[in-house]
Nucleic acid binder design. Sequence first.
DNA 1: CGGCTTCCTG
DNA 2: CAGGAAGCCG
Length: 832
Amino acid sequence: MPDHDSDSLLNRQTKRRRVDIGVKRTVGNTASAAAAATTTTTDNIARAKAAIFSAMNSLSSHSHHGSDTDSMECSVVQPHGGPGIVSANDTESKSNVLRKLLKRANSYEDTMMPFPGTTIISQLLKNNMAKNGGGPERGERGDRGDRVDVGFPRSGLSNASSDAPQEDACSNSSHDSTPQECLSPFGRPGLAPFEIERLNDEHLRAKRARVENIIRGMSHSPSVVVPAASRHERDHEMDRDQEIDLDCPPTQSQQQAPSSPRGGEVCSSSSRENKRKQRLPQQQQQSFTQLVCQRKEQKQEERRQLKLQLEDMQKQLRQLQEKFFQIYDSTDDSEHNDLHNELNNDIGNMSEDSPARSDTGGDDRGGDDLRSDNEMSDLDPGHFLDRARALLQEQALLAGREKPRREGLSRSKGQGGPGSSMHAEGKQLAETLKQELNSAMTQVVDTVVKVFAKPPRPTPQQAFPSLSIPPERFPTTVNGDNPNFHTANQRLQCFGDVIIPNPLDSFTSMPGMPGPTNDQTEALPLIVRKTPSEHHHHHHHQSSAVGAHGGHHHPILHPSSLSASMGFSPPSFRHPFPLPLMGYPFQSPLGGPTGGYLGRDRSSPDSMDLSRETTSLRTKMASVHHLGHHHRSCSPAHPGSTAELSLSLIKSECSDLQDMADISPYSGSNIQEGLSPNHLKKAKLMFFYSRYPSSNMLKMFFSDVKFNRCITSQLIKWFSNFREFYYIQMEKFARQSINDGITGVEEMGVSRDSELFRALNMHYNKANDFEVPERFLEVAEITLREFFNAIVAGKDVDPSWKKAIYKVICKLDSEVPEIFKSPNCLQELLHE
DNA sequence: CGGCTTCCTG
DNA sequence: CAGGAAGCCG
């Protein structure tokens, strides 16, 4: 197979690649241009400028999608950028640029908002995890937003900026000083000494002034109290401040600048600022000012709240800790100490890291979250601990061997002295404890869920915290060594954050519901209230949920609101609160949602298709993110700490969710919210009639599906994939025929026993239980001949040579039989 | 700009 | 098959 093939492929690909390269070039453009400028310019100032600029570019382009907007950004602040830098500068009008910047500022804020809290909680939960492992939660900022940690996302920054070891210099100096010295590219020791003096260039100074102003504002905030924190925030702060700076330069809203220890560097900032101000049109400047004002106030407020919350959490942690120890005080001391240390470590980590984290999230507005977090934590310890304690005691009593063992251990400690054996035993004990705690947890959650499902109107404040908190807190110190536990927690957060609030939001509009004070400002589309036909239930949750449907919708047990508001449909979603399943006994690695099926009864005959079905849901998750932050921002009663779910997390969470999910509550009703494997099958059969169905047509023929944008596009995508396969087969067989020496189109035919047809039939009609219409054979033959002719004519050298064929084929669609409009068409069709 | 398509990749 | 990028079109 020969040359045709590879040739055209090569052509296509190279062409394609060229495009790609062209696009990507914009990313590296500014940096490389700056680098080039570095080499070509002889002037020292220009060189310094270029160097710094390149560093800054690499910073900013690293901090988000390295798109061409970066270069534009630079062009705003640097209208007279170094030689060779961004030629597109002048073409873009300032107003446009500024608008983009503002827009970006918003989106940036949105994306940034979630993270800092996560790190706090994570630190709370992560037992003795590396303190500097804070990267994970923040790694999502990259292009990909993958669920997997990317380690230290900014690690490449210092490398990218051609200038040397600022990183080290920063980390060294950051111990004894405020973070600010590392925040500004200009403040970096590596650059400052020789650079600063020569920087008589206005815009550079203006830029620096802005950066430093921001820094001043931030360092003045109450939460920057822990010097050690600077280490954590430094690498993130650098680009972020860059971001803030670019997005909204500070003006009148300056804080009363505290006399900074490095005041010398900041001395003339006001004058620089004035100069910078002049660069901006007055109107934009004002809007900037306002923006900055609001933002700063917001930030201050958030910090205050965050700090308060932090303290509160610490208190509660200690409380919890004490209560915890009270239980075991009598039985074991070594363990006591171990756990005590662990807990203390956690608290220490928290207090050490959290302010930094909160600071790094300079843009996050976590007010609601924090408040709700406080609320929930207020309720948490009592309710939960009581139950936990009771359960634990009960267990201890029941499991008679446990206690002797513990005592034996504690005795051995006393006798054997502080040896290593004792340490091992202590660990063992810890393990036992962990297991106990976990089982207790499960029971507690089960109980609570059960209890919760009964009263028709549980107050959210009680319900959510008690449900969502315990798993977060309880195994806090106990599971530090379990890498999956963290993910489990995050999974929980998914529930707590996204899933729970949504129904609540939608529920606020319900009459008689003592809903949160927030108004629902945004329509919640796609929310369907249906009476789910319920079957295949093994969980009391399910039945209770259905029962709750009678009078009104239960806030958290309403599956449809979840799925609907999240943009994905729940044919396979069942439990809004599979919390008992989410402890670490149920381990489903974040990266591998495949392992996740519960060993539960999936008695539906279609259950084996679940995996495929779940994949069909994944597309819909694409729409999650905007909804996601919407709900974060407007649901007051949800656990605030969970607000920092990244989209990627949500995605992975929900694919996990799908794995955990069982049978749709809607599976018996007429309208589904998602596309099932049967729909896929049906679509494939429809392809025999129509290769290019319109979206309207699809809606007609899939009337049993509740259409939304995602469903539509998924269906369209299906047909697109069908076509792709179809045309690939056609081309393949056409080339094969040509290579087999066939010269006449007449020899090209498609019959039911031809290889081509078998391939197609295998793809669209795998079970071969559908009689392929004759028309399809004709169309296939026509297509094949088209390809044949085109290839023979050498048209395939044209990269778009297939388009002509597509044009022909798309006119060959025939009517899809009416029977396909029936939701049960498959049965009817296949039973013939 | 949004819908639709193709192309590429995983 | 899905996701995403790129392109076309109304």
